[in-house]
Design a binder for these strands. Structure first.
Lengths: 173, 173
DNA sequence: TGTTATTATTTTAAGTTTAAACTATATGGG
DNA sequence: CCCATATAGTTTAAACTTAAAATAATAACA
């Protein structure tokens, strides 16, 4: 080991801002920790999706939404539910359609609308991935007390509600 | 208002997987809520950074790391701390350098190395943004009890630790 | 019936993202 | 000195991302 250079080791995105030495307000500290934790887990799931299924995380998310709606969803609705912009959904659906997992239909009534739905192959593929996904999360959170998991779920709900009520921009309801 | 169509309203990425009706395991439920909350807040901060400062979130994150290290950081170290891939850091630093906020230097000892550091303009710019950023977070979490914020910080720490200990891929320590 | 506005989706431009391949250095033996 | 190997960054290809502009179709209504 070299000289000084204390080495923070695990990617620390935390204690980033303000006082130049990490004296942040509680809200900022919490946010940085939420963000880094989410990034960590997201990266892990992304890696596994790719390695085991050759799929990307946004594809998985999109298919997850369609899985719950056997009749399919309009692209706009899909956009809201996945929290992905409109234009983005277009591309995602295109690629998934090319892979044979999703199908696009324009209903009779309104020709502006496009409805996307899973094909049988897409349904089967998603079910396999979803089962694995669930196992990964159990694994990733294996060292967390069940009580803490429940508590977190509810407390994060409060954060989500507060955030929803203080949005500036494009956020309805 | 049309017909039935219950309207989940706020973008629900939650209750996505498994049972086709939202009967997920606690770990999955927690994960989906963490993810959607993080996405919500991230989008809000991104919007405000862009609107008020014309900056992007990754740029802000990168500058935040450099701010803490007046002597600058090697690009590889910067990559680890921001949790952004190597190649990505290259582009980010390039653009920030073009804007005059960051400066690149190759030290004498090892010509493979590039160290990035904030310019005076970059430091000043970041300080302004950081102050606003802190205020936004206080605003966003305004309805959350201080005690809950503290509890969350510690419990999410447990999740982060557990996740760190169950990584499959490229994650050292 | 013609606007005018609204809604649904696509396109565009710029930026971010990843993983993998590539280019220089450095370093450590023979 | 030469070669194998490791290290630091950059480049590349494909995908994702956003915000904003552009299309297209429908609805509203004077």
């Amino acid at each position: 080991m070299e000289t000084a250079e204390v080495e923070t080791a695990s990617a620390d995105l935390e204690m980033i801002i303000h006082g130049r030495s990490g004296r942040n307000k509680p809200e900022t500290r919490l946010w940085l920790r939420m963000l880094s934790t989410t990034k960590l887990i997201t990266a892990e799931i992304r890696r596994r999706l790719r390695a085991e299924f050759g799929a990307t995380l946004p594809q998985f998310d999109l298919m997850a939404q369609l899985y719950r709606e056997p009749d399919g969803l309009r692209l706009g609705e899909l956009s809201r539910r996945t929290m992905v912009t409109n234009g983005n959904v277009t591309g995602l659906v295109e690629r998934l359609e090319a892979d044979g997992f999703v199908q696009r239909v324009t209903p009779d009534g309104d020709r502006r609308v496009t409805v996307a739905r899973l094909t049988p192959a897409g349904t089967e593929f998603f079910e396999t991935m979803a089962a694995a996904h669930e196992g990964w999360l159990r694994d990733i959170m294996a060292d967390v007390e069940p009580a803490a998991i429940a508590a977190l779920w509810s407390e994060i709900g409060a954060v989500k509600t507060s955030a929803s009520n203080h949005l500036s921009g494009a956020a309805f309801e």
